[in-house]
Write a protein that binds this DNA or RNA. Structure first.
Lengths: 333, 333
DNA sequence: TTGTATGCGTTATCAC
DNA sequence: GTGATAACGCATACAA
């Protein structure tokens, strides 16, 4: 690997001049600048970002620790983070948490070893508490999306899941459905609990009874919801509307509904949560009515909070709470 | 930020001893080791990976430049790269190329500034040639997936698109379909051309005529294929089978087919390419018959080639060609 | 076992 | 305009 000294030697000048040329600074004669530039070019010299970051104490880099890069749910979040980071002049590095604490912890450590100016992590609080504590102890600048850390005042991005669920449920009730079910998300996540609470409160406020089968425990994916809905229909239950804690779960249940030759929304109405089908949003059957998470904005804002913390070391950490947006499509009458 | 000197001072020993403790090396008395360890712990000291990498001339890191992280197509590739990287003891950093040359170039530069030991890039050759040339000039160790670089002998992962298309087409012909169409992928990519060639050759070899409407030009996404199929059906054309250059395109066309109240596979049979619906592979309607790219293995192998190059600087670059696997599901009779 | 000195590749300070 | 020189935080050969 070529160094700045090699270039200086070839150009017969000091490293100082080469450094100035590299950084477009004044204080170098036009002839020398041209000569140095030429030598850099012809030798394919690339300066070491490592050395530069070391001396500057700045990496101009943000590390992002996602639960899992292989989940379409995160697409808008990733785009929001990426776009905002680019705009503010930061390089964004993603790592694939692989949904395991061990891997995520490893990358938190990796990023915090001076390789980034700050970090963004996504995750719900129940499961990820140790991860967040680790971040908080090792990194000064970071933002948590969705997760919380009661013990510390930190930068935090939240979604108002309760209100979203409340509104979705109320919508179904106003439409006149009277046998409404809620399929929860994974109950290991606070998010699911908040959505469940919103559902329950909306039912209570409208004098709708919550019975034995009203709450169906599922998770954030297709399979369990498929099985649960299958079971329900096999057992002769006929809900006229279902509110799901996650779109993916809704799609699982929809398959079961179709396999029972029932129609949507004529026989069963569906509302999802997340708006999580980016690529094929208009290509999947049916077009899902859902509570949309403004994930793009959430990602964008997380970068803004982080960069603010990076550039103003004694700025107060902030918490931003986003409201989900109700998207009416074709799965309610 | 705390440094090794701070710790040394607090422990009243030299930096050398702290360094040895940090790296689990011998040559430190048990008492000193314990004392140093305690001080590291209570001060939340984290060594600078930057400085370490600089002096070691090794980052233990691989940078991955994808076209776009927000595309489910890459899921298996990402997983393969991640798993293999982890197994071989490397940190894997993904960046979001955002499908623009400019962004991808930026990250190639970023990674090549001494911040990684090597890079992996995905992309087809026609569009990305400048990117690959840039990589080749700046980085010694890298692997290209799908793309090629005729001017240079490099590590390369390829898929046998031609044979895959040939087999898929032959399958349709053997099944007795006689009005078979091919929806191409984006013709700016070599991949699409190879698949088209496979289709054409299979048709020729079986004495099937290729007519004016036999080749339909689409791309890798839903929209164009949807429009094209819509147009076709509106114009009164009734193919009995279609082979698509990409699964996403197949799904777009499927929507158009359904909107014309035609059945799959009874009225029109479908074969896709890629097997690109990871999360909902069994949840989308219908279950697509397709040529599967072994993307996981391709990702895994790319890391192995790269690490081999990193650890044996004068190893010969290799080219590995993978065969797609035919997955029969529900869209042919 | 311990510590000193040197270097990794860069930027920044300060003479000249 | 130019060039020594000293950092940045760490690892290591070598001396003690």
């Amino acid at each position: 690997m070529l160094t700045i000294s090699d270039i200086a030697q070839k150009a017969q000048v000091s490293r100082t001049l080469v450094s100035r040329v590299l950084n477009n600074k004044s204080g170098v004669s036009p002839e020398n600048r041209a000569k140095i530039l030429a030598i850099i070019e012809e030798n394919h010299y690339v300066p070491s970002g490592l050395a530069r970051s070391l001396v500057m104490q700045k990496t101009q880099t943000i590390g992002v620790v996602m639960d899992d890069l292989c989940n379409s749910y995160f697409f808008d979040l990733i785009s929001g983070i990426q776009d905002a980071g680019e705009k503010l002049g930061y390089n964004i590095l993603f790592c694939n948490g692989h949904s395991t604490m061990e891997t995520k912890m490893k990358y938190v450590d990796y990023f915090s070893q001076g390789r980034t100016d700050g970090m963004i992590a996504y995750g719900s609080d129940l499961e990820n508490e140790p991860l967040f504590l680790n971040m908080a102890s090792k990194t000064s600048c970071f933002v948590l999306i969705e997760g919380q850390l009661s013990s510390k005042n930190i930068n935090n991005i939240q979604l108002d899941n309760y209100t979203g669920a409340y509104k979705a449920t109320t919508h179904l009730i106003k439409l006149g459905y009277h046998n409404i079910l809620h399929f929860t998300g994974d109950m290991n996540y606070n998010v699911s609990l908040e959505r469940l609470n919103g559902f329950v409160q909306a039912m209570h406020d409208n004098n709708m009874p919550i019975q034995a089968n009203t709450i169906v425990y599922a998770d954030y994916f297709e399979k369990i919801a498929y099985q649960q809905m299958n079971q329900l229909l096999n057992d002769g239950h006929r809900p006229d509307a279902c509110f799901f804690g996650a779109d993916k779960a809704a799609f699982g249940a929809i398959r079961a509904i179709y396999e029972h030759h029932l129609r949507i929304p004529e026989d069963i109405a569906i509302i999802g949560f997340d708006d999580d089908v980016p690529d094929s949003r208009d290509m999947i059957f049916p077009n899902l009515t859902t509570m949309q998470q403004p994930l793009y904005d959430m990602g964008k804002t997380s970068v803004e909070l982080l960069v603010n913390s990076i550039e103003n070391p004694n700025a107060e950490p902030q918490t931003k709470i986003f409201e989900p947006k109700f998207i009416i499509r074709d799965t309610c009458r």
